[in-house]
Computed example of a mutant assay.
Amino acid sequence: MSGSRSVLTHLALTVVGFLVAGAAGGLLWERLSDPTAGLTYDNQWYLEPAGPDVAFQSVALFVVIAFPLGVVLASVAALWRDGEMATVLTVLVAAAAAGLVMYAVGTSLGPPDPQVLAAGSPDYTPLPGGLGLTAPDRGRTPWMSTALAAFPAGAMTGLVGMFLFGTQGLARRSRG
């Protein structure tokens, strides 16, 4: 009974750790992000200067923060060598939730959606761009992006690395 309680405690701590790290990652994402500049015209917001490299910086920063966080947290979770399958499933679900938490915290702290603010604003009004994982075009859902897979991808990379190359992964067992 104490063995299963120990595994459940480990899994619960793993989930909590991922969620806290997701919130911290969202805070870091918002703090390090340089809002894109734009102008309003005809009740719409446009990047100024326009270009995919300008719109992509928020997405790139999200991935640069989320992937390593996933690797580190999963590597720490993999140090516990009991219940590997439960650990893999828990880390995968917790990492996906942490990515969503990171997005929610970052966007709630960042500037509001410029497309909403552009409606009713006079033409050529400068507005900062909001944090999002897609281009800030009208009609796009700002969270619908493959960048949300960065946290789980990093976590799976960390688990595979630890399970294969961790301290016990390549240990030779005696044959006699």
Score class of each variant (00 low, 15 high):
101 V>E: 03
154 G>I: 02
131 L>Y: 02
126 P>Q: 06
34 D>T: 05
103 Y>F: 14
117 L>D: 09
136 P>R: 00
153 A>F: 09
174 S>T: 11
90 T>L: 03
42 D>H: 11
85 M>H: 12
87 T>V: 08
103 Y>A: 03
58 S>Q: 07
68 P>R: 05
164 L>W: 13
103 Y>R: 00
122 P>D: 15
120 G>I: 06
58 S>W: 00
67 F>L: 14
111 P>S: 15
110 G>T: 04
75 S>M: 14
150 A>M: 05
9 T>D: 14
18 F>Q: 01
10 H>P: 03
85 M>D: 15
168 Q>G: 10
74 A>D: 02
83 G>I: 04
134 T>Q: 10
34 D>V: 03
140 R>K: 15
3 G>S: 13
45 W>L: 02
149 A>M: 12
34 D>R: 01
7 V>Q: 12
64 V>Y: 09
12 A>P: 04
10 H>Y: 08
162 M>R: 11
120 G>H: 07
166 G>H: 05
21 A>K: 00
18 F>D: 01
63 V>N: 04
52 P>S: 12
71 V>I: 15
123 D>R: 07
28 L>Q: 00
84 E>K: 13
23 A>D: 05
75 S>L: 11
65 I>G: 00
131 L>V: 04
148 L>S: 08
25 G>L: 05
41 Y>F: 13
174 S>Y: 13
64 V>G: 09
92 L>C: 08
4 S>K: 13
112 P>Y: 07
101 V>K: 01
128 P>Q: 06
29 W>Q: 03
147 A>M: 01
116 V>R: 15
148 L>I: 07
76 V>N: 07
32 L>F: 00
20 V>W: 05
